[in-house]
Computed example of a mutant assay.
Amino acid sequence: MSNPTPDHGYVASSAEQDTVESIVPLMPLVLPLCGGVLMLLLASIAVFLA
Rank of each mutant, 00 (worst) to 15 (best):
S2T: 13
A46G: 09
D7E: 15
E16Y: 15
L29F: 11
S13K: 14
G9W: 05
V24I: 13
I45F: 00
V11G: 03
F48V: 00
A43T: 06
G9A: 07
M39W: 04
M1K: 10
L38R: 01
P28H: 09
G9K: 03
N3M: 08
P6E: 14
L41D: 01
C34M: 13
I45A: 01
L29M: 10
L42F: 00
L40H: 01
V11P: 00
V20I: 12
S44C: 12
A46Y: 02
T5L: 13
Y10R: 09
F48M: 01
M27G: 02
G9H: 05
N3Q: 07
I23Q: 06
S2K: 12
P6A: 14
I23N: 04
S14K: 10
L26G: 08
A12K: 06
C34N: 04
I23W: 10
D7L: 15
V47N: 02
G9F: 04
L33W: 04
D18F: 04
V11F: 06
C34R: 01
P32R: 04
A50R: 10
V37G: 02
Y10N: 08
M1W: 09
L29E: 09
P25D: 05
T5Y: 13
A50M: 07
P25V: 04
G35A: 15
M27Y: 03
T5Q: 13
L40D: 00
C34H: 02
E16N: 15
Y10W: 12
A15C: 04
L26T: 07
F48Y: 12
S14G: 07
F48L: 02
E16D: 15
G9D: 08
A50K: 10
Q17F: 05
S14W: 06
Y10E: 10
A12S: 07
E21D: 13
N3Y: 07
L29T: 08
H8C: 15
L49Q: 08
N3R: 08
M27S: 04
E21K: 07
L31P: 00
L49E: 05
L26H: 12
M1R: 10
I45R: 00
D18T: 15
A46C: 09
S44N: 10
P25L: 05
P28K: 05
V47S: 02
L31M: 14
H8E: 14
S22A: 11
M27F: 05
A43Q: 03
V11S: 07
A50F: 07
M39E: 01
V47Q: 02
A50H: 06
V37A: 12
G36M: 14
L40Y: 03
Q17A: 09
N3F: 09
